[in-house]
Nucleic acid binder design. Structure first.
Lengths: 171, 171
DNA sequence: CGCGGAAGGTTAGCCGGGCTAAGTTGGTGG
DNA sequence: CCACCAACTTAGCCCGGCTAACCTTCCGCG
């Protein structure tokens, strides 16, 4: 029982690693990074506020700020003020941004389609059947109570002794 | 024909994005980054040379050097000289590294196994059937001739005008 | 009304992990 | 012996995460 699950998990883990590496190779050196692509994708359906974007991407606000700064500087995205609440800034795709998104998406999907061409019809069916299952993984998202504490007491692997970093004793 | 492929590719793309985000959330804030974990995994079967590691991970040599530096400083890995060729440096896991690897792997697979528990037996079977297919993707690795040149003439999205960077006119 | 806390964003500064260019050291062939 | 190549390392850049600290704006309550 448990062993079957563990073995399957091991295989999934391996394949996932493989897919990650594949994605990395596919995306490397392209003019739009996958993060930028992802953000633009979130804007396709209309303007969004910064917080919404950050949450959807599982990222802190400052990270999204920087991302949007770059896209805005490149003219792919524009900020506006929300008339209802002066605190919030809304972001939307410019026309150029929309066009660029279309091109990038087409290229990425095209490449994947070429990969899929190399499969048999049956393999494609198998793959298609498994997609909904894969999409379900991590849907419940247990809050990661885990890391059974064997790792909990091991220090992270860092560059240097890390001098001026306070360990946040709660102000 | 073509359309089916494209549609499937679109779905695969979406699910892949989902999985990547899942992995990111899973791994965030752990004491061993996924890259470090990956490198240690490559060392499990015995000592390796730097070039071999870099190639396997699809990374340039300098990147691997830095990675190994950190792991060595943390005592998880050790460098030695190759008696047959003084140019090459071999890297291997220390005892502590081996132990740490074991712990991390167990934790990661354990978490995945918990995800899989939430699936039905049938879903697990579907997933298991699709794993070999997923593993085949990108195996042939067409050299990325693609990026149909709509993207080719668009500049990358950067932080600053990027002054002192020469565009490499082939020495 | 006014004020203090909460909420939305930005800035600054650190770190990890990529990359290229250039330097160093050790093999190898003419 | 010397020129060249191969294996690494060092230096310096960039992207993309993060936290801490700050500013502005809203809002609820005395």
């Amino acid at each position: 029982m448990r062993d079957d699950l563990t073995e399957l998990a091991g295989h999934v883990s391996t394949v996932l690693r493989h897919l990650v590496l594949l994605l990395r190779r596919t995306v490397a050196g392209q003019p739009v990074t996958s993060q930028q692509y992802g953000v633009m994708g979130s804007l396709e359906s209309g303007p969004r506020r910064m917080t919404g974007l950050a949450e959807e991407h599982g990222v802190q606000l400052p990270t999204m700020t920087v991302q949007i700064n770059r896209l805005e500087e490149a003219g792919l995205v524009s900020r506006s003020a929300d008339p209802a609440d002066a605190r919030v800034r809304t972001v939307e795709l410019t026309e150029e941004g929309r066009e660029r998104l279309r091109a990038v998406r087409q290229a990425r999907i095209g490449r994947l389609a070429r990969e899929l061409e190399a499969l048999t019809e049956e393999e494609r069916a198998t793959l298609a059947a498994a997609l909904p299952v894969l999409a379900k993984l991590g849907r419940k998202e247990s809050p990661c109570p885990s890391w059974p504490n064997s790792a909990a007491r091991s220090r992270p692997v860092r560059d240097r002794p890390l001098h001026g970093r306070k360990e946040s004793p709660r102000p």
